[in-house]
């Protein structure tokens, strides 16, 4: 049967589990899609402001912020501080050993511009390389749905960030952890965590690490048990304000360039901060046969935040061979060097 591409987003029938309705031409996600209305978004934003006012000003920080130095997180930090200038924010940048110098410079610059504190979280490069090598070599270590959201490498990286940011929030008695996820990446604007859920998530990640061959006995990646045991009343909530704001890549870039953020020097259409991303995409395509950004991009297209043509272009763009080769060398992994690495649609 020939491949069908959803008429509304960018998903196609060759992606495992995706069905396109022949009558409507839509994938089952688009058929059941109910976006947040403007009214609902406004209500969420009002609720977030109320939460900031109710719980802010009590700990060392109000917000622990995940700052990659890329465009989305830089913009969200800028707008967050502009809309809520009273917030005391600690921006945490995870240097995963592949964070570009430009991203580190941009992150520090954004903190200076917004008056936020900056903290760089990192580990020994050898440990990070070994971890990502194992993630790349793993197969089916993450649930099916996680593979739709991101590559195995990105899933490991983002889960480390989540674990360590929640840990930081507990230590700093900060009531909120903020991520710059778009509507395509996370549909839930407010996530109230509970101790049980944090404990459960930690244990799940511990098992996933074990599955790829990592015993994190020193809790380098995992939320430290000792911190969790002393959590007391300081259970943070996770907020995703970017998914409530009007989003367009052009608008985000225009705003950032005006305030002095510098465009990345890396040739990757899906990341403006991580030099491992192209390899992670290549690795995912080789293992599972579809682009790890397909669902993210489909979400943006579905919600009208990205034109469909642009979405299709993004997931069909040739991956950067030099970036893939450089990452493979660092991870001591082999790649297929003789062919062009292009996503097939």
């Amino acid at each position: 049967m020939s491949k069908l591409v959803c008429k509304k987003c960018v998903l196609d029938s060759e992606i495992p589990g995706i069905q396109i309705n022949k009558d409507t031409g839509l994938c089952h996600f688009c058929e059941t899609y109910t976006p947040l209305s403007s009214k609902e978004k406004k209500e969420y934003l009002t609720r977030i402001e109320e939460l900031f006012k109710q719980y802010g000003g009590k700990g060392n920080y109000d917000v622990i912020y995940a700052l990659s130095g890329g465009k989305d997180s830089s913009y969200t930090l800028y707008k967050l501080k502009k809309d809520y200038p009273f917030l005391k924010i600690l921006a945490v940048q995870f240097d995963n050993g592949f964070t570009s110098e430009n991203a580190i410079m941009n992150a520090k610059k954004m903190c200076k511009i917004t008056g936020c504190d900056y903290f760089q979280l990192t580990m020994e490069k050898e440990i990070l390389y070994d971890t990502f090598q194992k993630a790349a070599e793993s197969y089916d270590a993450f649930p099916k749905f996680a593979k739709y959201r991101a590559s195995d490498i990105c899933n490991v990286c983002i889960t480390i960030i989540k674990q360590k940011l929640i840990e930081q929030a507990i230590v700093q008695k900060a009531p909120f952890v903020v991520f710059a996820f778009t509507a395509g990446q996370s549909p839930n604007p407010i996530i109230n965590l509970s101790v049980n859920f944090i404990q459960w998530s930690r244990n799940l990640f511990e098992k996933q690490l074990q599955k790829i061959g990592i015993e994190d006995k020193d809790e380098i990646f995992l939320l430290k048990k000792e911190v969790l045991e002393n959590i007391g009343e300081n259970v943070p909530s996770i907020l995703h304000p970017l998914c409530l704001w009007d989003y367009s890549e052009d608008k985000v870039l225009e705003t950032l360039l005006e305030i002095g953020w510098e465009p990345p020097g890396i040739n990757d259409s899906n990341s403006t901060n991580c030099t491992l991303n192209s390899f992670a995409c290549y690795n995912h395509l080789e293992k599972y046969g579809f682009h790890p950004y397909a669902f993210d991009v489909a979400g943006l297209v579905r919600s009208g935040e990205m034109p469909r043509e642009e979405g299709l272009e993004k997931i069909n763009q040739e991956l950067s061979q030099p970036l893939i080769e450089e990452a493979a060398r660092k991870l001591k992994l082999k790649i297929k060097s003789s062919q062009k690495i292009v996503v097939k649609v």
């Binding site: 089916d140 649930p143 959201r149 996370s186 549909p187 859920f197 459960w200 990640f205 098992k207």
Partner: peptide
């Protein structure tokens, strides 16, 4: 979780 059907983010969506 052990059968690889759901992870922590999936759990949040299932709860919703």
């Amino acid at each position: 979780t052990q059968n690889g059907i759901i992870d922590s983010i999936g759990l949040l969506e299932l709860m919703d």
